[in-house]
Design a protein around this nucleic acid. Structure first.
Lengths: 228, 228
DNA sequence: GCAAAAGTGTTCGCGGTACACCCATGG
DNA sequence: CCATGGGTGTACCGCGAACACTTTTGC
């Protein structure tokens, strides 16, 4: 008995990417200005249709790569939005993904897309249900950031303790006590304190740290739980 | 400029439901035995294709209703599985949903589907990636159960403190101290202690409680956080 | 020598956990 | 009267939160 799926409906399925970045101060998202109808000229998430020969993860990676030229970016599937009229011109389902990228890496943003970094707290209205997607993504980011060391994806290789604190403060939109934050991080024991100092921020200079991926993996295997 | 989506690929998109139940002792899932190829006779989650005129939420509700006759069931979207060869006969994407149903409600399970309740810990191998879907669903269930009062969806209207404890022990696969559990629940202050007792479990009988939905909503609005 | 950021410890209160005995009742 | 499950309170410990002063050095 051969399968016959010809009478089942088929759907357009897209991916949309919420691309987070951090500039040392504010949490940002990368938005694109549409150069096609509908809603030409308005701001939206970067997206694209899923092809027959790729998974949604691959499609999201392709979309991200097309825009930024980057590969091997932290990417995680979020939700699937299937409201019938979420786009006005056709029934299109969309699987949202969020990406964490280091804003300092020299990214060659494809000029074709008129992309721009916006502060998360001040971004323009987005088309369709993209505002909702962003809200959902922020919630997921917070949850992940509190249980996994994903924050480091948003920082450069070496960073000061203050950078790290600023990042967490930006993600959670709260402020923390410097001493408590530092000792909490130190207690995790997954950072390497380098000999180098960042001299740009003060006369005294502040030590640079690196995330110790190997140590983290080792501790994970031993039952360690990242928690912040 | 009219839109033309005709050259974009279209996909078969299904929903699959992880249906959780609780019998007072064990956490269960409702599985169906396939009566069609491929994998006829093997066990799988209940699923179905999404139609043109319905959202995935609606499709999941329809699928659930077809199997159990129930409506207004707690249902939440989980993940979307898009591996190209996840099903052998065609490229089918699937959006998973998990449902919580009260196993004691008299459910008229549609006989057409040869459905059966299995203990979560002892269920048979499932087809395709359904085993993975179940694992993912359990993780989500645990997370939700620890931050929202969804456990009550799995119980009858009135329940004893022991029922509730058994439920949480089943969900988290741990055991708790009776006194600590009780005082934690009482501290939440979202249950109504009725005058009635369940006399079937002991000679003394144990008081029946109900979840106070209104009080919970009121407390929520005042900033209350459910946490267990 | 002073301004500006870096670095560092202690105290306190609350919440979570461990733990054991009396109560009510049907048989 | 006894066996069975129901119901209840306290002591301790660890963690998270609050909080302020000294250090360094470029200017």
């Amino acid at each position: 008995m051969k399968q016959d799926y010809s009478h089942y409906p088929r759907h357009l399925v897209a991916v949309d990417c919420i691309i987070f970045g951090f500039d040392g101060e504010n949490l940002k998202i990368l938005l694109v200005q549409r150069n096609f109808e509908p809603k030409m000229g308005e701001w939206s998430l970067m997206g694209g249709f899923i092809n027959d020969n790729e998974t949604s993860d691959q499609a999201a990676n392709r979309v991200l790569n097309t825009l930024t030229g980057l590969e091997n970016i932290y990417l995680e599937q979020l939700n699937t939005y299937t409201e019938i009229h979420r786009e006005p011109t056709a029934r299109i389902m969309s699987i949202s993904y969020y990406a964490l990228i280091n804003i300092e890496k020299d990214i060659q943003i494809n000029e074709k897309y008129s992309a721009k970094w916006y502060n998360l707290k001040e971004h323009p209205e987005l088309i369709f249900d993209h505002n909702e997607m962003v809200k959902d993504a922020v919630l997921r980011l917070r949850r992940r950031a509190s249980t996994r060391p994903i924050g480091f994806e948003l920082l450069t290789d070496k960073f000061t303790m203050k950078d790290l604190q600023n990042l967490y403060e930006a993600i959670f939109d709260e402020s923390y006590d410097k001493r408590n934050f530092t000792s909490k991080i130190n207690a995790l024991d997954i950072l390497i304190k380098t000999e180098e100092k960042d001299m740009t921020s003060s006369k005294k200079g502040s030590f640079l740290y690196r995330f110790d991926e190997k140590k983290y993996q080792k501790k994970l295997a031993e039952g360690f739980m990242f928690k912040i």
